[in-house]
């Protein structure tokens, strides 16, 4: 499923896609890198993310997460153990509103995408890449540096019900996470404390230097939009849209 990507030498633009990984589509763009290192970087990340996705896939009964969820006595892999740790930390930081173990079983859902973007950010920075735009299904974006022709990466957020643009976000060395309900797919976010499914026509955005933190915050804001999350997480910009 992983493609080799395409490289345009004139702009030193590399683009690659995985049509389905971590439950969605991954688009990867890097600029300003020579072809060989650009391809090597993608190869490294794409094989890692495909592998991680398979281990975390709770819809595959043979995946590591499914086996853990079914009660099998299993030593979690380093990645899964790290995610569980991070999950516990963020659960505490959000007073239990962000919980990867909501309902008793592990579901890394959005968190996995944020975590994968952390990994990507680390790889890109180590490789000296300062211009990249990575997008997991529109809901988890990492924007390193700026658009080659502009002062930032500028992302429009369309209203999923009407298609009309709700807002523009300028991203520069930042990650953006979007949560919310869309037509035909509503109520997939649950308040772990009350079990209530969030069915409001609401979208939330969190932008932060840390992709993982952005992920946690867009979900927490979706569950509890009235809280003053920015006081606890001053590095983040957050917004809630009632559509």
């Amino acid at each position: 499923m992983t493609d080799e990507g395409s490289y345009s030498p004139a702009q030193q633009l590399f683009h690659a896609v995985i049509p389905k990984v971590m439950g969605t589509r991954l688009e990867w763009i890097t600029c300003g890198m020579k072809e060989k290192p650009a391809r090597m970087l993608w190869e490294r990340f794409s094989s890692w993310v495909s592998d991680a996705s398979a281990r975390l896939n709770r819809f595959d009964p043979s995946s590591e997460v499914s086996r853990l969820n079914s009660g099998e006595c299993l030593e979690p892999s380093a990645d899964v153990a790290a995610l569980m740790d991070l999950g516990h930390r963020y659960k505490a930081l959000t007073d239990g509103l962000f919980d990867v173990q909501s309902g008793g079983s592990l579901d890394f859902g959005g968190m996995a995408k944020g975590w994968a973007l952390e990994k990507a950010k680390d790889l890109l920075e180590r490789a000296g890449c300062s211009c990249a735009f990575l997008n997991f299904g529109g809901s988890s974006i990492l924007a390193l540096g700026t658009h080659p022709n502009g002062p930032a990466w500028q992302v429009a957020l369309p209203d999923p019900f009407s298609g009309i643009t709700l807002d523009l976000w300028n991203l520069k060395d930042a990650a953006m996470s979007v949560s919310g309900n869309v037509p035909g797919y509503t109520g997939h976010i649950e308040n772990p404390l009350t079990g209530e499914r969030i069915t409001a026509r609401r979208l939330t955005v969190a932008v932060d230097s840390s992709p993982l933190r952005a992920e946690v915050l867009s979900t927490a804001l979706m569950i509890s939009p009235e809280r003053h999350w920015e006081q606890r997480f001053p590095s983040a910009s957050m917004k809630c849209y009632n559509v």
Binding site: K20, G23, T24, G137, G138, H147, G150, Q154, V155, P158
Partner: peptide, 14 residues
């Protein structure tokens, strides 16, 4: 350079 509609609640594959 312009804004692109690239964000939204998680999109599922084709």
């Amino acid at each position: 350079f312009a804004a692109v509609p690239a964000a939204g609640p998680s999109w599922r594959p084709e």
